[in-house]
Design a protein around this nucleic acid. Structure first.
Lengths: 176, 176
DNA sequence: AAGCTGGCTATTGGAAAGCATAGCCAGAAC
DNA sequence: GTTCTGGCTATGCTTTCCAATAGCCAGCTT
């Protein structure tokens, strides 16, 4: 299908502004290139997300993580193993007196960098209107947290002020 | 299992600071209360996420959305229907000359508010090291976007400065 | 009226996610 | 030794996700 130029919906409700070669969406596609898809390959399951949530709440040990997420031990073990393999968590030995050496799961730098994703999801989940729940606040002033989109130079950016840019891999690879 | 007080891992790697009644994780659990889980019920599938991504890139019509996400038409139709039912998208009639009236999918306010989630995921996905891809930048200055966690009063907040707070539903309901 | 087309819908099947239950194993307690 | 326990591991099943393919239908064209 060839889309008549400029006819695909009014642009009054466009969210991201596509500029340059991106303006014609028929000329490129994001499949396989998309960083969101890459991210979802690692944390795209419910079990991975709720385990990382519990890690953020301070859970470290296997039985606590399994119990508090409501996952079965089998699912928790499998997913924790994968999160370690993917570099979000690290196994760290510990030993309680009179007990054998065990391992607890602590976040790596990559795991910590998931913070804005978790906060953004919690913020959006609040919008869904179900009352109650746990809210994150700034320990210093007590105000609730939110994720704000800013550019590297510090400007706050709303969706219409956003443009998409192609990043090549240096090997001359191109979109599509 | 009763966890000996203060023994569950060193707190040097704690991410979120739990205060007050939250300090004892055995006294509460997030299952069912968690806003992240609520959010994932709506956008927890890969198909929902990539469809919303294409909506952000400006895709509006069924065949374009299906084609650019790489989803089959059956999956795209089912997921779009669900996204409309959940209030992230809205069906808007359009008619091209000589064609019958059709519907395109435009984001609602709720759908637009997903922006920080998408940006945070893209930012984190970039960290995974795979080269290439589409990057979002500020249209004004060209710098790449990121999601920054701030409190309502405008302070930037790092994970250790974060506290968790219980929000009741006004009916005296409590955690667990 | 007949045909074409875009936007779905239905069916089938395979893969993955997740639950329930049971079993295994290293090592401390005894 | 033997027992006990926490942390997994294995097995079987159900559900959900998604691909592939085929079919349906409103209404525009001719």
């Amino acid at each position: 299908m060839t889309r008549p130029a400029g006819s695909a919906g009014s642009d009054t409700d466009a969210i991201i502004t596509l500029t340059g070669r991106f303006a014609d969406r028929d000329a490129w596609q994001a499949e396989g290139w998309c960083r969101i898809e890459h991210a979802l390959e690692l944390i795209g399951t419910r079990s991975a997300m709720v385990l990382m949530r519990e890690i953020y709440y301070g859970g470290r040990r296997f039985d606590e993580l399994a119990r508090r997420t409501g996952l079965t031990e089998a699912v928790a073990a499998k997913r924790l193993k994968q999160l370690v393999a993917d570099g979000l968590l690290r196994r760290r030995p510990y030993q309680e007196p009179g007990k054998r050496t065990r391992y607890e799961y602590v976040p790596t730098e990559l795991g910590r960098e998931l913070f804005p994703v978790l906060v953004a999801l919690m913020q959006w989940g609040e919008r869904l209107g179900r009352e109650g729940g746990v809210e994150l606040v700034h320990a210093g002033c007590g105000s609730p947290l939110g994720a704000v989109v800013k550019c590297a130079k510090g400007h706050e950016v709303a969706p219409p002020d956003t443009a998409a840019r192609l990043v090549t891999d240096g090997n001359g690879a191109d979109l599509r």
